[in-house]
Design a protein around this nucleic acid. Structure first.
Length: 588
RNA sequence: GGGGCUGUGGUGUAGCACGGUUAACACACCUGUCUGUCACACAGGAGAUCGCGGGUUCAAGUCCCGUCAGCCCCGCCA
């Protein structure tokens, strides 16, 4: 660069800078050579500004500019000029000005990139990820990554202003039972022993509370060796928080202020608070999901009572076995074609339904394969219960298994907006509360924690731990946005006796508990304050802020579905020497 | 572990259901002309054996089997 020094970013320049002499550095976004006059769009992270070269400005610089190609890195010296009348470009932030360049230096040449550096064309993700450094030059990715930075910065400032301290926790830590599969790291100095990368800093943050730091947070990487999805990859970032002496309300309050503040700051969107709260039970009934998308209605209703004495055999069987019948009323159901209805049945089937009935209410009566079995009384009862009008279609599921029924009705519900042409927009937040503490794991024949083993039961439900553990409700909560789980947390157990009891219920034996969590149990016995917290999926949060459908678009170097980094080629085999040092033998 | 979609010059696609000369189009790229363009324009040019392997056939981008990769989903994700 010699003694050249950049004076500003390209898109910072505006009309008031006209007359200034500037030195700019950046990438050639595009070159337009008109023979007697050459234009270059110079790009840096701020945006684009037009450079002008010509024989009347500087013939030598003009000759050099003609030889420049896309993505060359150049430096120019020139004067900011008002564009001649009629040649302004309103599509550019800097469209009223241009730089008349009298000097140009090529700082580096570039191969022709494998895909255009622009947002115009959808490039195969394969190629994008292999050349991620070029992909990240695209304006959209620059915006997303900068947005991510701003979000992290805002969160840090906010939480710090609320008295939270950011404290780091180890990445090389202890493998714990329960939860996701761990990523393991072999220990060279302790042959045969392994660290685990943290699935979350859960235990450390609880220990910070015991240590008296009162309020902790961390924007921290977490690792879970499970299969990937559009909103899930094996290493991801959490906004992890914990506080001492909180009630649920304190956690809701701080979380809502953080999230709404973030949306205001970054998107200038106002979100009402407090967020609605829905119990897990109600969510499963009305939406068939513990992370409901409430941007549209089409709620699920229980209509079991209508069919107490029905002639429809499949319904009667279900009712007799103590099961339920539930329905989604689709107003203006004629938008659903026969093909749609067939596909909805398939959706239900793929999630465990034996079938899905439908009743079309029309002015000529009921249209349905089951129409002739429906009694007048049942029809009237349905009309009244669900305020049905002619034109509505009722989608009806019946199952003796409540969970299966909820699940497939929820899946059917989620597939409806696309079929009905309902446009999903806006930001619908809610809290899901009153989760059960435990669920039964059929395969392992034991209870397991719905949230995690450190979650406190509701005080009034503690006696149920001995009599009916599945009825125990947890002091746990999830924040949901548009059908995506944004974050979750709980008030923790702070008594070592209660913690031991829960471990026992989870079939974690005394020995194992001591070996795996002994330090926690011991710590809890040294004056642990009541404490609780929450953690937010930062990648998902930024994804939603950016309006993207995949967290890969807000992570600089994401992994593919096979957990591979296409740019570096990780993971890859290592040398025999490395393995030997780690006392590891590989068998394939 | 399972289901689905995709794979054709550098990029994005067409062609494939119905097998048949030199695989088409746009953009990008290269050369040239051009003093107000900004998706510059115009003229010319180079570039793909169709993800990979096998099979059927006189003949395969097209049909069949397998395989690899990417994506979406189920399982899994305290």
């Amino acid at each position: 660069m010699g003694d050249w020094k950049r004076t500003c970013y390209c898109a910072e320049l505006e009309e008031k800078d006209v007359g200034k002499r500037v030195t700019l550095m950046g990438w050639v976004n595009r070159e337009r050579d008109h023979g007697g006059l050459t234009f270059i769009d110079l790009r840096d992270r701020s945006g684009i500004v037009q450079l002008v070269f010509g024989p009347d400005i500087d013939p030598h610089a003009h000759e050099k500019a003609k030889k420049v190609r896309s993505e060359y890195v150049i430096a120019v010296r020139g004067e900011v000029k008002r564009r001649p009348l009629g040649t302004e470009n309103p599509a550019l932030k800097t469209g009223n000005i241009e730089i008349w360049c009298y000097e140009i230096k090529v700082l580096n040449v570039a191969q022709t990139p494998p895909f255009p550096i622009s947002d115009d064309e959808e490039v195969d993700e394969n190629v994008r990820l292999k050349y991620r450094y070029l992909d990240l030059r695209r304006p959209k990715m620059q915006r997303n990554i900068i947005l991510r930075h701003k979000a992290a910065l805002w969160v840090r400032n906010f939480l710090s202003s609320q008295g939270f301290l950011e404290i780091e926790t180890p990445f090389l830590t202890k493998s714990t039972p329960e939860g996701a599969r761990d990523y393991l790291v072999p220990s060279r100095v302790n042959p045969g022993c392994f660290y685990a990368l943290p699935q979350s800093p859960q235990l450390f943050k609880q220990i910070f509370m015991i240590s008296g730091f009162d309020r902790y947070f961390q924007i921290v990487r977490c690792f879970r060796d499970e299969d990937l999805r559009a909103d899930r990859q094996p290493e991801f970032t959490q906004i992890d928080m914990e506080m001492s002496f909180p009630t649920e309300e304190d956690i809701f309050d701080i979380s809502e202020r953080m999230i709404t503040g973030l949306f205001k700051e970054l998107l200038d969107v106002d979100i009402d608070r407090p967020f609605p709260r829905v119990s897990y039970r109600e969510a499963m009934l009305k939406y068939g999901s513990d992370k409901p998308d409430t941007r549209f209605g089409l709620e699920i209703s229980d209509i079991t009572n209508v069919f107490k004495d029905t002639k429809i055999k499949v319904f009667r069987d279900v009712v007799e076995k103590g099961g339920s019948i539930r329905a989604i009323k689709v107003p203006q159901g004629q938008k659903l074609s026969r093909k749609d209805l067939d596909e909805l049945v398939e959706v239900a089937r793929s999630f465990g339904a034996k079938g899905l009935a439908w009743f079309a209410f029309t002015s000529d009566g009921i249209k349905s394969p089951l129409a002739k079995f429906l009694s007048e009384g049942e029809i009237n009862a349905l009309r009244e219960l669900l305020s049905i009008e002619n034109g509505d279609i009722l989608l009806v599921g019946a199952d003796e298994n409540e969970e299966v029924l909820a699940e497939y009705m929820g899946r059917v519900r989620l597939s409806l907006p696309a079929r009905l042409g309902i446009n999903l927009q806006g930001y619908k937040f809610l809290w899901i509360v009153d989760f059960p503490l435990l669920q039964w794991n059929e395969e392992e024949n034991r209870y397991e924690a719905v949230h995690h083993p450190f979650t406190s039961p509701k005080e009034e439900d503690i006696p149920l731990l001995d009599t009916d553990p599945l009825k125990v409700r947890a002091r746990a909560y999830d924040m949901v946005l548009n059908g995506i789980e944004l974050g979750g947390g709980s008030i923790r157990i702070h008594s070592s006796e209660l913690q031991s009891k829960v471990f026992k219920l989870l079939n974690i034996g005394e020995e194992e508990a001591k070996e795996k969590f002994g330090f926690l149990l011991e710590a809890l016995s040294y004056g642990a304050p009541p404490h609780g917290g929450i953690a937010f999926g930062f990648d998902r949060l930024v994804m939603l802020l950016a309006g993207e459908d995949s967290i890969r678009d807000v992570i600089a170097f994401p992994k593919t579905q096979k957990a591979v980094c296409l740019m570096t080629g990780a993971p890859s085999p290592v040398t025999a020497k490395q393995l030997k040092e780690l006392h590891i033998e590989v068998k394939l």
